[in-house]
Amino acid sequence: MGFRLPRIVTSKQSLQRSSSTGNGESPKAVDVPKGYFTVYVGEEQKKRFVIPLSYLNQPSFQDLLSQSEEEFGYNHPMGGITIPCSEDCFLDVTERLNES
């Protein structure tokens, strides 16, 4: 059973990639604007992305979250949601979501 969230962002707003602090610590939550959340993506080296909450009700993004649950359960080593796919795959999915 899924849940629906109102569309928060327009298609012109795009995915934001934020930088990490470089010392292994996560940037503070204040880096994340209201209506967005962070995920970590990558197979070897993880990159932090700030994405809109509206992605949560999209089937293609829910598939990525299912992969994350299968691999990590609720124990995410980065402290946030870690999605176990390549950065290119993630960017392809989010690009399609931005177009819709």
Results as ranks from 00 to 15, higher is better:
residue 82 T to M: 06
residue 49 F to L: 08
residue 18 S to I: 15
residue 30 V to M: 05
residue 83 I to H: 01
residue 9 V to W: 08
residue 12 K to N: 09
residue 19 S to R: 05
residue 65 L to S: 06
residue 8 I to F: 08
residue 62 Q to N: 08
residue 21 T to I: 11
residue 52 P to D: 00
residue 32 V to K: 02
residue 78 M to N: 06
residue 59 P to S: 12
residue 52 P to Y: 02
residue 58 Q to N: 14
residue 9 V to C: 10
residue 27 P to R: 00
residue 8 I to L: 07
residue 57 N to I: 09
residue 8 I to M: 06
residue 6 P to E: 10
residue 72 F to T: 02
residue 22 G to M: 10
residue 57 N to F: 12
residue 7 R to W: 07
residue 36 Y to I: 01
residue 27 P to M: 05
residue 49 F to Q: 06
residue 71 E to S: 08
residue 43 E to R: 08
residue 81 I to K: 05
residue 63 D to M: 09
residue 56 L to W: 13
residue 70 E to L: 00
residue 66 S to C: 12
residue 83 I to G: 03
residue 65 L to H: 08
residue 82 T to H: 07
residue 65 L to R: 05
residue 24 G to V: 09
residue 15 L to S: 13
residue 71 E to P: 03
residue 61 F to L: 12
residue 60 S to M: 07
residue 81 I to T: 14
residue 13 Q to A: 10
residue 57 N to M: 11
residue 78 M to S: 14
residue 68 S to G: 09
residue 66 S to D: 08
residue 15 L to E: 10
residue 6 P to C: 11
residue 84 P to Q: 09
residue 47 K to H: 13
residue 27 P to K: 01
residue 56 L to K: 13
residue 28 K to N: 14
residue 29 A to N: 12
residue 9 V to S: 10
residue 7 R to S: 07
residue 54 S to L: 03
residue 62 Q to P: 07
residue 59 P to Y: 11
residue 34 K to T: 12
residue 72 F to S: 01
residue 15 L to T: 14
residue 9 V to G: 01
residue 54 S to G: 05
residue 46 K to Y: 12
residue 68 S to M: 07
residue 30 V to N: 06
residue 12 K to L: 10
residue 16 Q to P: 03
residue 41 V to N: 00
residue 24 G to R: 08
residue 13 Q to D: 08
residue 33 P to A: 02
residue 12 K to S: 14
residue 21 T to H: 08
residue 47 K to S: 15
residue 49 F to D: 04
residue 9 V to H: 09
residue 52 P to R: 03
residue 62 Q to K: 10
residue 32 V to W: 01
residue 24 G to S: 07
residue 32 V to T: 07
residue 86 S to Y: 11
residue 67 Q to H: 11
residue 69 E to M: 05
residue 11 S to T: 13
residue 44 E to V: 12
residue 47 K to N: 14
residue 64 L to A: 07
residue 83 I to W: 02
residue 20 S to R: 02
residue 79 G to L: 01
residue 11 S to M: 14
residue 65 L to Q: 00
residue 78 M to E: 10
residue 43 E to C: 08
residue 20 S to T: 13
residue 61 F to Y: 15
